[in-house]
Design a protein around this nucleic acid. Structure first.
Lengths: 198, 198
DNA sequence: TATATCATACCGACCGGTCGGTATGATTGT
DNA sequence: ACAATCATACCGACCGGTCGGTATGATATA
């Protein structure tokens, strides 16, 4: 096998092992040695491919957010009606909880780190501000086309993000087996039409 | 001074030092020795009053949630109109962010721990289910008195909690100096009356 | 004196990261 | 084609340091 292929294979197996261990044990609880053992690779190999323990997480995070990005753009393009687009955001939440569920707890771990570490902040929080802008644009579109009331788009976006984050956190901590996709969809309907009596 | 007084004073100073250090550094980053130094107390004293490092956090958490409890009950009692009661919840969020802001990041840290550690879960997550029940009851009251539409109270409560949690998280990570109390209030108004055009 | 309250000294495990060395493919000169 | 040279990929022992926790003795109160 070519040297380069072998290298990428090694790096990939390290990433895969790290992703799995981070997911089931958390970041702090996972040592570099454990990752190496799980990947069937030496510590030297690890530090050949990654500068620090943190850098491997950041790379993992980047890949992950990239996938989320693509999903959002996909929805954006396939959406003509803004209201429908917002509702389909609920499906994303459900999907995220189903598919990426196991690795979501790491987000909590790193959000708390992001508060103090600028590097972590940049990699984990800053992207979410992009999402906020995305939603703000979507809301603006809704206002323009007349399907939404004339509200401050940015604050409305914040509310949407809050819903998403709040649902994710609850979904992580509530093990009761609720269908959070449904609940999120309901929440978005509440938000659209209000919960007050007419 | 009496022996008991001296003891409680020591314990209290340990708790105070721990609370401060946890807030500014996080839980993991704070060692027991650091707490002892900050409290002007020896390690022996620490482990005389607390079984483990985790136990001191759990005690801190209990005190903290107790305060939140009282605040909620206070609002509940002083509220006749449910809609107003919900809106005043927004003020709590703002207060929580202002007053307890520094120590909120620890919540993130422990929420992620709660996923794996049953003890932590019981102390940090279970209380929030009480709050959910509280909001569910409030919603039910609103339905009964006719000010709210006839919606599943529990899911509506989940939505409210999601909003609160999501706002708190964003407030922690967004350092732009936004007035999250205002935004939360706005969010609750959105939720009450809907954001869709009439 | 007996007991609660602390101080000191210390333990063993483990952690992220380093480093000297090697094995093996790639490159170049002949 | 073949050897000499170099670069990349990897190994695993090891390091300084930190951590949570403990064992034991001193001190003071009751």
């Amino acid at each position: 096998m070519k040297q380069q292929d072998r290298a990428t294979q090694t790096k990939e197996s390290i990433l895969k092992a790290a992703e799995h261990l981070f997911a089931v044990q958390g970041y702090e609880a996972t040592s570099v040695s454990m990752i190496c053992d799980a990947a069937g690779v030496s510590k030297g190999a690890f530090y050949h491919h990654f500068e620090t323990k943190q850098s491997i997480f950041l790379e993992l995070m980047q890949r992950w957010l990239k996938g989320l990005d693509e999903q959002l753009v996909l929805i954006d393009e396939s959406t003509e009606d803004v209201k429908e687009g917002l509702l389909s955001m609920g499906e994303i939440i459900g999907q995220v909880l189903d598919v990426g569920g196991p690795q979501l707890p790491i987000f909590l771990e790193f959000w708390s780190r992001a508060i103090r570490d600028p590097d972590v902040w940049e990699a984990t929080v800053e992207p979410f501000q992009r999402y906020r802008d995305f939603f703000a644009a979507l809301v603006q579109r809704g206002i323009d086309e007349g399907s939404l009331r004339d509200l401050a788009p940015h604050n409305t976006a914040r509310v949407l993000i809050a819903l998403a984050v709040g649902m994710l956190v609850q979904g992580l901590l509530d093990t009761g087996g609720e269908d959070w996709q449904d609940i999120t969809k309901e929440a978005l309907e509440f938000l659209l039409h209000g919960i007050a009596a007419r």
